[in-house]
Nucleic acid binder design. Structure first.
Lengths: 151, 151
DNA sequence: GTAATTTCTAAACCTAACTTTAGGTCAAGA
DNA sequence: TCTTGACCTAAAGTTAGGTTTAGAAATTAC
């Protein structure tokens, strides 16, 4: 009944649509930091709903959890973030997204060229060296093109 | 010295830039089918260089290995694929790529709206329900939005 | 006051796309 | 022929992003 006992993890899960296990996992990854009540259970602020929403959106944009943590570190630590604060860090997302779109459009253009010439033969094909490393740490052949482990 | 003893796996690896282990893995996934020489070693056709190139390119486009296998099944099985054959299956890639670009552009537009309003609060935010399931089986919260396991 | 929920931690499991390791076989050059 | 380097298989390890399980403690509901 107290105004500010905070949300239990289950309640936060319901509000965000995330699984309880996912929320705990995000905490382990440093994306969210609840406090503990007397019994050792996690309690969250209402602002954390928004924080997790941001995490989910950033994921749709293709950011990894470490990247999202980085972006979130742009929020003030000493007070509840304002809409202005959120807008500020959202701008970073926008440029990330722009880059991804650029990359894909470049790939598409190259593919158009290749459909025309039927090449697809290495190393002549332009598709083969789209000169961006955007995909470098995703899936796909792990050590392709200079991304090899040391030694 | 025979004209057609085929490429050993190491040679194919060098031509494509793939790791030997990756090529064996692709075989296990049904993406490529070498024959065996008398000693049981894998031998490849020169056309397989192009086949693996296609695999790598399709991966950059975001296709999974099963999807790539599916696309490759559009090639003739009884003869070496011609440039025309490659062009034919490349068209499918083009539409896949178009979809991905569309999705991202839609996300970007929504983000622009959200930067304006500072919302990011569920479930009002448009970013939250970009009404496409493109991301559904990628990474991210696994059972988000109706993608739950049975029972 | 007790039963039913929630929550807790730690550790194991999951998928995709590979790599690494271990123990042995094949092939090519001197 | 002998030796080195390439190749073989099967199984285990890796990373990201979580989920599942097990056993115990806290909370809530009646």
């Amino acid at each position: 009944m107290a105004v500010s006992e905070g949300l239990a993890i289950g309640a936060l899960a319901q509000r965000t649509g995330l699984a309880v296990s996912a929320i705990r996992y995000y905490e382990a990854q440093g994306l969210i930091a609840p406090w503990r009540n007397a019994g050792g259970q996690r309690r969250y602020q209402r602002a954390d709903i928004r924080r997790l929403s941001f995490v989910m959106i950033a994921q749709q944009f293709g950011l990894t959890l470490p990247e999202i943590r980085e972006v979130l570190s742009g929020l003030p630590g000493n007070r509840t973030p304002t809409p202005k604060d959120w807008q500020k860090i959202s701008v970073g997302l926008r440029s990330h997204l722009d880059q991804r779109i650029d990359t894909l459009m470049r790939l598409r253009d190259n593919l158009d060229g290749c459909i025309g010439c039927g090449c697809l033969s290495l190393p002549k094909c332009a598709l083969y060296n789209p000169d961006d490393r955007a995909k470098s740490h995703g899936s796909g052949p792990r050590y392709l093109m200079g991304d090899a482990p040391e030694a």
